[in-house]
Write a protein that binds this DNA or RNA. Sequence first.
DNA 1: GTTGAAACCTTAACATA
DNA 2: TATGTTAAGGTTTCAAC
Lengths: 156, 156
Amino acid sequence: MAEKALDETDRRIIAILQVEGRLAIQELAARCGLSPSPCLRRVRALEAAGIITGYAAVIDQARVGLPVSVFASVKLERQREDALDRFEASVARWPEVVDCYLMTGQRDYLLRIVVRDIEAYERFLKDKLTRLDSVASIESSFALGQVKRSSALPIA
Amino acid sequence: MAEKALDETDRRIIAILQVEGRLAIQELAARCGLSPSPCLRRVRALEAAGIITGYAAVIDQARVGLPVSVFASVKLERQREDALDRFEASVARWPEVVDCYLMTGQRDYLLRIVVRDIEAYERFLKDKLTRLDSVASIESSFALGQVKRSSALPIA
DNA sequence: GTTGAAACCTTAACATA
DNA sequence: TATGTTAAGGTTTCAAC
């Protein structure tokens, strides 16, 4: 989790690539006032440092038949000491779970689950989430729509 | 929000590009059992159809000095009819708000706000969110860490 | 879906500050 | 430590089939 010193140019590169991840290095270089070589070297360095962890096509959930996001707030039982690791391993394995955050307040996780419809969510609950015996409680909230999903962190 | 008919190859392309968004078309084509031309045409068609909405470098929040995610559950006042639009417009403008979902149960939004530290969050609350007079209540939950943030929807 | 050719991009070596 | 220039090799793109 170390934080590396980033200069203006690095931040510029990140800001641009967060929004235009497939931009050619030449064009990226031009927009940063660099020639392509140092620009490419910086991008590779950012990748190597684990700051840029990858590149992703951004997909419209609804248009691929997955309009429903469900937020599940999950509380784990206090008794089981290895429960957190096992819970996290399961979550990592389940493709429906798109985001998972460990929250303050002891054993709480917030998940975002992406599914085709409510029925698919019920199946996910029944076949997967409630099967973990470390789970003490689950509270589900349904999203009607995505108002904003930014690929850009507020770097600047 | 129309859903277009996607064949196996389209889904394959999406699945790959969600994880390797900068993959060369040649390589993508090879993995889909296509030659580059039709593969590129399909990618362009997915972009034109609004299924692929863009490409993004995936950034490690913590390593760029933004370790804190806050989930804010916001309830709007019932009286103001134009409140939703104005709220959504504000949210779109604020870079700290990275995700925003409209939730079931009348006037509820769930926001994810990304900041440097708790102080920055307090500043966001004080200077921005609580300034909107349509906001009836805000409940904040803090994330200690990201267990999973997948760039891949469960397409398959 | 295929081929092929032109245009364009990436990248490493080496020079420079 | 950082960038700039060059040139070879690879990739993208599009028209014609």
